[in-house]
């Protein structure tokens, strides 16, 4: 569904991604794990066209997208829930959800989807007229994922959804990720530092170090791999 081939991305003179190749099939949950600063978030920003690739190919459903503007990439159904949630702080919860559906025109269905989200996350329904900046970290993460879902993603890019959240909420977030994948058949590309949880929920995984992919395998095999166990699972 999404193919990255030999993608190189730079911030000025500094190379952030080197010859990156990643392949994601329809309906899969793929995880990308790696340490701080390895280039995981840059990978997602490159896919979305925020930090365009200098060279290499990015193909989404047989169509080249590496030169498209972000809004046209989003229109194809590639939706990112970025690191740090990035909730619009002065928009209400309801308006944040509306922004997620910015490119949609089906009013009746948008309304149904918002009702559905309020069902899964009753806390958001309670806070619907509060501004985003007043929510707690966990609530913001739920809102960020919900806002992503409002865009009807075909491919959902999640950047560290567990970052800074209490363990109980982390478990909840990961079960939601599985649910999104199973119920809507949404393909998910999950970037995580929490390798333990990520490898449990995903089908396949990539390991990234300083802008390169160093390992690619099924999650079972990655969990058995000695290097991965030492570096990311703390065993």
């Amino acid at each position: 569904m999404l193919e990255l081939e030999n993608v190189n991305t730079y911030y000025g003179n500094i190379q952030a991604l080197s010859n990156l190749s990643i392949s994601i099939g329809e309906g899969e949950i793929i995880t990308l794990i790696g340490a701080n600063g390895a280039g995981k978030s840059t990978t997602l920003m490159t896919i979305c066209g925020i930090v365009p690739a200098l060279s290499g190919k990015i193909t989404f459903e047989d169509e080249r997208i590496e030169r498209l503007s972000t809004d046209r990439i989003v229109a194809k159904g590639i939706i990112q829930v970025p690191e740090g949630r990035r909730i619009f702080p002065y928009l209400t919860v309801r308006e944040n959800l509306d922004m997620g559906a910015y490119l949609r025109n089906d009013k009746a269905e948008i309304k149904r989807d918002i009702e559905y989200i309020f069902e899964i996350f009753p806390i958001l329904a309670e806070r619907r007229n509060q501004t985003g900046g007043t929510l707690s970290g966990g609530e913001q993460q739920m809102l960020a994922i919900s806002r992503g879902l409002m865009g009807k993603p075909r491919l959902l890019l999640l950047d560290e959804p567990s970052l800074g959240l209490a363990p109980l909420i982390v478990t909840q977030i990961f079960s939601i990720i599985r649910k999104i994948n199973e119920e809507n058949d949404t393909t998910i590309f999950l970037v995580e530092q929490n390798a333990n949880q990520a490898l449990k929920v995903a089908h396949r995984g990539y390991v990234m170090e300083t802008g390169r992919i160093t390992l690619a395998d099924t999650c079972e095999n990655l969990m058995q791999n000695d290097d991965v166990r030492k570096a990311y699972l703390g065993v």
Binding site: C48, I50, T70, D71, V74, A75, I79, Q80, P82, R86, F88, P89, Y90, L91, E95, D98, M99, G100, Y102, L103, R147, G151
Partner: peptide, 17 residues
């Protein structure tokens, strides 16, 4: 709404399309 969203977080505004 798009104007307010862009004023608050330009990158996120682009990511919503």
């Amino acid at each position: 709404k798009a104007m307010r969203a862009t004023a608050q977080d330009q990158v996120m505004a682009r990511l919503t399309g």
